[in-house]
Computed example of a mutant assay.
Amino acid sequence: MLVRELTEKDYIESLKLSEYAFQYKVPESEIPARLERLRNHKVLGIWDEDILAAKLHIYPLSIYMKDAEWKMGGIAGVATYPEYRRNGYVNTLMIDSLEHMRNNHQIVSLLHPFDISFYRKYGWEILNETKKVTIEKMNLRFLEPQQGFIRRFSRETHNEDIEKVYQQYSAQFTGMLKRETYWWKQHVYDKDSQMAVYYQPNKEAMGYMLYHMKDSKMEVQELVALDHEARVGLWNFICQHDSMVGTVTIHLASQDPFPYFLQHPNVKIELHPYFMARVVDAEECLRRFPFLLENEPLFLHFEDSHAPWNNGSYLLGKGDLKVFKEKVGGQCVHPPKKGIRLNINSLSAILFGYKRPIELYEMGYLKGSKPEIEIFEKKVPALKSSFIDFF
């Protein structure tokens, strides 16, 4: 089964497969722009003679790991025509994509799952959860007035103040996408979006909310605040629409303190798993990860059935990393007597801060002695994962 990277002459076939698999139709006037965007992707495909039977897109992106940037491969557009399903085509594409990403130094990968259990088989694990808050008009009650002011923008008037707020906000988390200006205009805004920015009296932007209104409903797609003043200022701006809307829906990071600080915080809250993440290159990720170094050395033994270059034993020392990959019959073998054994899913959950080592140990995902788990727990800093984009 041959996987081939698509070239420009194949892009229209890729678009046709997406339209069929995801059941939408691109207007004729928008096709040139859609095809132009594919120039920025790597599209892998499997062919049956001249028919594109299955495909997978890799977006070359970067994410923030607090104040660091890591290259990331974003998986999207995984599709197969019905007559070619259950032939192992997607399996082949998923495994092949890992090698492509590794060769391009994309050391981690993110995707939005149609089925979490499906992608877990290939090593991706839950990255974050989103919080959806629904507020009825009667609960739109103002908090104390703030000294700052609101200015509204659109895709056409988008400015760097908004990008600076997002970048500062992203540095609090692991997993947030590094957004270039083109990404804001092509992927963040839609044709109905408006942007409200909260400014302090000195004209420094401290928060924003991206929203749209339709049929007496306001949907806040993003609400980002750098401090509580901005958070309250944006909430009061929402309340200013009390004569225009009957319901407000706000999408937030799961760690956001909203609605705790409201006068009446008893509102409808829904929590959902959102994106998934995977370590593509374990050695490089471990070298870059900000482990706390004042603890004892610790062995980690990895199993990665789909990316065998990750298999091996890794010694976390005080400021250094040693890698041991003894090969027997072409397979990497892990010394079983000392250290913690874990798969790539668990490593991904730990490095992104979605789960702590002790949590995974208690659920049976980490194998090792309790003292070793406690050492690992001390080595991993407290992190919070988040992701608010979509691709």
Score class of each variant (00 low, 15 high):
Tyr59Glu: 03
Asp115Thr: 12
Tyr119Lys: 02
Glu36Tyr: 12
Tyr122Asp: 01
Met72Asp: 01
His41Ala: 10
Gln146Ala: 11
Arg120Phe: 01
Asp67Met: 11
Ile150Leu: 11
Arg120Cys: 05
Thr92Phe: 11
Leu98Ile: 07
Gly45His: 02
Lys164His: 13
Asp161His: 09
Ile107Val: 08
Phe118Ser: 08
Lys42Ser: 14
Leu56Ile: 04
Gly88Trp: 01
Thr157Leu: 09
Val90Gln: 02
Tyr59Gln: 04
Val90Gly: 03
Val133Asp: 02
Trp70Thr: 02
Lys55Tyr: 06
Leu56His: 01
Thr92Gln: 11
Arg34Cys: 10
Glu129Thr: 12
Leu52Cys: 08
Ile116Arg: 13
Asp48Ser: 14
Tyr64Asp: 02
Ala54Val: 10
Asp48Val: 09
Arg141Thr: 15
Gly74Arg: 03
Thr130Val: 12
Asn139Phe: 10
Leu98Ala: 01
Gly74Ile: 03
Lys55His: 06
Asp115Cys: 12
Lys71Phe: 08
Arg85Trp: 08
Gly77His: 02
Glu83His: 11
Leu140Glu: 05
Ile116Asp: 11
Lys131Ile: 06
His41Pro: 06
Tyr119Thr: 03
Asn159Ile: 07
Tyr84Phe: 13
Met101Gln: 02
Ala33Asn: 12
Gln147His: 15
Glu136Tyr: 15
Gly73Met: 00
Val90Ser: 04
Met101Phe: 02
Met94Ala: 01
Leu35Trp: 07
Ile51Lys: 15
Ala33Phe: 15
Val90Cys: 05
Arg39Lys: 13
Ile135Cys: 04
Ser109Arg: 02
Phe142Trp: 13
Lys164Trp: 13
Arg141Glu: 15
Lys132Trp: 11
Gly73Ala: 06
Ser62Tyr: 03
Glu136Gly: 15
Pro113Gln: 06
Glu129Lys: 08
Glu69Pro: 05
Asn103Ser: 13
Leu44Met: 09
Glu160Ala: 15
Ala68Phe: 14
Val78Pro: 01
Leu38Glu: 13
Arg86Leu: 13
Ile95Cys: 06
Met65Trp: 03
Gln106His: 01
Leu61Met: 15
Leu127Pro: 00
Leu110Gly: 02
Val90Trp: 01
Ser109Val: 01
Met101Ala: 04
Leu110Ile: 07
Leu61Gln: 05
Val78Met: 07
Ile135Ala: 00
Pro113Met: 05
Met65Glu: 06
Leu143Tyr: 07
Ser117Ile: 14
Asn104Met: 04
Arg152Pro: 07
Pro113Trp: 01
Lys66Gly: 04
His41Cys: 11
